[in-house]
Design a protein around this nucleic acid. Sequence first.
DNA 1: AGATCTGTTATACTATTAATATAACAGGTA
DNA 2: TACCTGTTATATTAATAGTATAACAGATCT
Lengths: 124, 124
Amino acid sequence: MYVKIDFNSDEAIYIQLRNQIIYGIATSQIQEGDNLPSVRELAEIVGINMHTVNKAYSILKQEGYVKLDRRKGAVIAIDIDKLQAIEQLKESLRVILAEAICKNISCREIHEVIDQIYQEFERG
Amino acid sequence: MYVKIDFNSDEAIYIQLRNQIIYGIATSQIQEGDNLPSVRELAEIVGINMHTVNKAYSILKQEGYVKLDRRKGAVIAIDIDKLQAIEQLKESLRVILAEAICKNISCREIHEVIDQIYQEFERG
DNA sequence: AGATCTGTTATACTATTAATATAACAGGTA
DNA sequence: TACCTGTTATATTAATAGTATAACAGATCT
């Protein structure tokens, strides 16, 4: 699984890292039980500091995407609290849908976009 | 239209301000042609600095939600570039949908949540 | 036992951003 | 003229992002 950081982005490196790993899980490039590179290893690959990787991993742990083990390092382990997950989804979507409504995007158009993205993910 | 700032939030004040105004437009509490309070006025109402309000207004202007006029102040004026708007929508949705897929939320469930939020907005 | 890997913690430094505080300027309005 | 707009400039404080070293505790392997 490739990890690509845009150093010119205004998005924090550890956030980019977090998002890419979530993409990786969503597209099945990495799966439950797989382990991520160690913080030091990934830091060297990407060319950033160990602590920045550690921050990304800690967030992923806190959000229930990985478990951290001294032996194996970071292991993909999805902790599903579905009700809570749907609540968070709703909260995230509110801002985005408000923006869409302002821009005259219809409900149907949003559904179409959703399906498109889903297909992107399914293709990997 | 009420504006409520959570000073304990980790979200920047000017972002909260921007989002609330977008909510206001989406729910028709404020409409095309309406003018927002002046930067100094809103700053006093909310209890924050003028520049923080100005930053929010500048972003809203840049994003095509308002026009700034020396006479009337900030006026709601949606600048719709729909193709671009849909592209931005897509980009915003990718991360959120990836998270949803990881959490085992189905495509159908997302569609349902979308409809729920749409109904929320329609009710005001 | 000893070397080596893991995450974890601590400390320090720099750069950037968020937010505030004053102040002034230019244009429109009454 | 007085007063309202947004705008710009400058300065300060606080928080965050990222880097840099260093050390510690547990697990693994030779």
